[in-house]
Amino acid sequence: MADLEQLTAAVEAGNRKTATSLTTEALAEGVAPQAILDAMTSAMGSVGARFSAGDIFVPEMLIAARAMKEAMLVLEPSLVGAGVQPVATAVIGTVEGDLHDIGKNLVAMMWKGANIAVVDLGVNVSPQAFVDAVTEHKPVVVGLSALLTTTMPMMKTTIDALRASGSSVKIVIGGAPITPEYAEQIHADGYAPDAGSAAALIRDFLEVPA
């Protein structure tokens, strides 16, 4: 019998081969795809919490996300077959002028790890492109990322554009130079100091248990 706790542990440790083979085994034994997915999202939840606590760092988070991504390639057809849907949609991008995508990619990985469909607009995204994406995809949350102190003011411009368009989507901001005071100052709905907290934050918005 495939051990889902072992799958959780394999994803957490970033052991992609074990994660993939345990997923294959579990599916062969008829374990429900949702239960397999839950084992992986649980792993990514603890990876996020350990990252937020400063116990692990970006490389460890990257290998965990990579392990889940590879196991998901095996799992995905069965999820589709079983009608398992993402719990919500989120839109993410770095604000105009900022080309640095590592933080944004980490948040996107952690959101995917929480079974959220992520529309990744990439880098250097104009306020209007965020507005258009919100109209098209109707996300629950929009994530704005800035790595540079020099591009932070563009977050305010983007939030103002989203609000001016009449959207009430939840807007969360993050990135190395961002502070909670800054988030409040520019009227963001939420601030995540790191990618682990970003996953917890979106679960709060969705009232999804961790």
Partner: peptide
């Protein structure tokens, strides 16, 4: 290298 419109560079 690339850059945003009149912004600092970025390694692409």
């Amino acid at each position: 290298r690339d850059s945003a419109a009149d912004g600092p560079g970025h390694i692409a």
